[in-house]
Design a protein around this nucleic acid. Structure first.
Length: 292
DNA sequence: GCCTCGA
DNA sequence: TCGAGGCAACGCCAC
DNA sequence: GTGGCG
């Protein structure tokens, strides 16, 4: 029973992370604990969930549309193609999806209410073969420094088992075309500033041994991992917002798992802003002028 | 994980 | 009645 | 137009 809604739990003792011994019931407990945090970032966005009915390392599939068998309490929003997409805006929906073995929750850059305006940019810093996490940290801190000097607020979180993601609020002021331009502008700027450190080359061959700085091609409906979402990794890691000071002190994405996420959140609170603030907008308008 | 379809 | 299949899909660039 | 890439 969640908020007066009955939810039947099938196979409660099924292992979702077999090596770690995490059963579905264990997993649902985690989801219940972190509900307010993940909901805060997932609500009123179009959800893509990834389901692993037999565990994190077995067959999976993506799900976007509200299935016909969804309970009535599940809220949805109509996409421009006419179909209904899940709005992960309440605990009951989260638990229902948990029972369906949804191990990852991805949401759109934009909110349902303003579908053509992303709320933020995201840079994805993921080390590939032969790179250590220290390189990711070095680049992230360089980016942070630069943004600070431009008076631009940014946030950082782990992306999964290996990388970091940097969020830059843009106040729902731009459409996807403009946001893509701004994102690309920054990516080129950083690639230019740290030519030995990072590359924005899309083709793997051309990347050499530099860190791939992915400025995440964005479009309406594109979704990326939501803050506080678990990831289907062998560590049962969580996409965890962190403080820039923590990045500086040297963290590892594997440090954050569904085992310790709640303790951590209780200790530091939610350090991600709602991503709707306008404080960066002024800095961006001049940048947008320059791009033209 | 659950539903639908076809043998 | 039971197994197989579905459950997502944009923009960019090189070819 | 198709394929690699995220």
């Amino acid at each position: 029973m969640v908020d007066n809604n009955k939810i039947k739990i099938s196979n409660p003792d099924k292992l979702l992370w077999s090596e770690l011994g995490i059963t579905k019931v264990d997993y649902l407990k985690y989801l219940i604990y972190i509900t307010p945090y993940i909901i805060k970032h997932a609500k009123d966005r179009f959800l893509t969930t990834i389901r692993y009915p037999d565990g994190y390392d077995k067959k999976f599939f993506y799900q976007k549309k509200v299935p016909s068998y969804a309970p009535e309490f599940v809220d949805s929003a109509r996409w421009k193609d006419g179909s209904e997409y899940i709005n992960l805006n309440k605990q009951a929906t989260l638990v229902w999806l948990g029972n369906l073995a949804s191990l990852e929750f991805h949401t759109t850059f934009n909110r349902i209410q303003k579908p053509f305006s992303p709320t933020n940019l995201v840079f994805d810093l993921d080390p590939s073969e032969g790179q250590v996490f220290e390189q990711v940290i070095e680049v992230a801190l360089n980016v942070y420094d630069t943004l600070n000097k431009l008076n631009i607020t940014s946030y950082v979180k782990t992306s999964g088992a290996t990388g970091l993601q940097i969020y830059i609020p843009i106040g729902e002021k731009y459409d996807y075309n403009e946001a893509r331009k701004i994102s690309k502008f920054f990516a080129e700027y950083f690639a230019n500033k740290y030519p030995e450190l990072i590359t924005i080359e899309r083709l793997k061959e051309k990347r050499g041994k530099k860190l791939y700085f992915d400025y995440l091609q964005m479009w309406e409906g594109k979704s990326i991992i939501t803050p506080y979402s678990p990831r289907a990794t062998k560590y049962a890691s969580v996409s965890m917002p962190v403080k820039w000071e923590e990045v500086e002190a040297g963290i590892k994405p594997q440090d954050f798992t569904i085992f310790n996420a709640l303790d951590r959140i209780k200790k530091v609170g939610d350090i991600f802003e709602p991503l709707l603030d306008n404080k960066n907008v002024e800095s961006f308008s001049s940048i947008l002028q320059q791009i033209k």
